[in-house]
Design a binder for these strands. Structure first.
Lengths: 185, 185
DNA sequence: AGATTATTTTGATATATATCTAATTAGATA
DNA sequence: TATCTAATTAGATATATATCAAAATAATCT
């Protein structure tokens, strides 16, 4: 389920994603205004304006005060600013996928290309090949050096074309090599 | 017609006013990603993701680069920031009503309550009364002092209850008074 | 050239929503 | 209490759009 932060930001965008509501906010930027006044300005019927104001109020962007039967609405600038600022932050944006399983993609690719321990084929697309390579490199320990023959043997357990895969691992900088010795950087 | 700035901001909000698109932006915040990858992450079909990416591209929020048949999308952070900042500014918000006739409301009220030069009645609602008072005070010059009798005569040309209206003008600070002399502040 | 893969386009459908009129509610006034 | 006014709610309608499956494109590989 989506976080409360996510819902707030979504309803913020929904609130401002309509031409009439954007104009209402514009009109309220310079002055508080009654429903009838807004209706006249925007050439809409009062119920329509009322409907829009309800959405803006829901998002916390406007507040209302009564004066007799007149309802006078004003912008909540602090909320406008707070929400806008939050959208500006990359940290906040990243949380938009909070409820999504982040490794769904990798698991799918691994499932598609492996049959048990055996790699059925080397993916043509770089994106997918990367997933396979990241899995392969996990077969190597960090605190060890490997001779080329060992590297070939380990990769060979999963796919016959160990030469290509070895080269790709180096190329992707997942494995390092110097004078015939390999290790995980 | 709406200004180009207004349309850009509206399409910015429209682009981000959907749950799936907000999540796509979230996924792209940490990494560039292919259509298929996004589809897997969000549990949507590729055409749906393609549709959303088109909208985000339209708004200038993402860009695409091809790698073989794979299309890899990435966030345009500068555009995100630029648009968000513009929304933060009150000046920008005020321009949202640029194409709206700003005195439509006042003209409507004056039309409703006046019959020629004659004020039919004094509006009950403060908002409307203010419009009438602002019109009335225009009957006075800035660089003159008026005796109460003169004030009554001028107001009386438009409505018999000059006493109430005179008091309201003072109350709204549209007219100033000291020891029986009146002037426009 | 033919086959394969990733993406986009098209067409269909269901849901959401902007707008209006008519009816209702709530406050103020006579 | 009855009336008037401003706003909201209810109900209806038309438009917009999110989603999917199927078809069409585009790039790559055999």
């Amino acid at each position: 389920m989506a976080s409360v932060e996510f819902s707030r930001i979504l309803s913020f965008f929904k609130a401002l994603s309509d031409e009439s509501r954007l104009k209402i906010v514009g009109a309220l930027a310079s002055n508080e205004r009654s429903v009838e006044e807004l209706a006249t300005l925007l050439e809409l019927r009062a119920p329509t304006v009322s409907h829009h104001l309800a959405k803006l109020k829901e998002a916390g962007l406007v507040e209302m005060r009564s004066e007799g039967t007149t309802h006078i609405y004003h912008l909540v600038l602090s909320e406008m600013r707070a929400l806008t600022r939050r959208v500006l932050s990359l940290d906040t944006i990243e949380t938009f996928t909070e409820d999504v399983h982040p490794d769904a993609w990798e698991r799918k690719i691994l499932g598609d290309f492996f049959e048990g321990q055996r790699l059925k084929e080397i993916p043509a697309s770089r994106k997918k090949r990367e997933v396979i390579l990241r899995w392969l490199v996990e077969r190597f320990k960090f605190d060890r050096r490997y001779m080329e023959k060992e590297v070939n043997a380990i990769i060979g357990k999963h796919h016959p074309d160990f030469a290509t895969l070895r080269r790709e691992l180096i190329c992707a900088k997942l494995l390092a090599r110097e004078s015939g010795v390999y290790w995980r950087p």
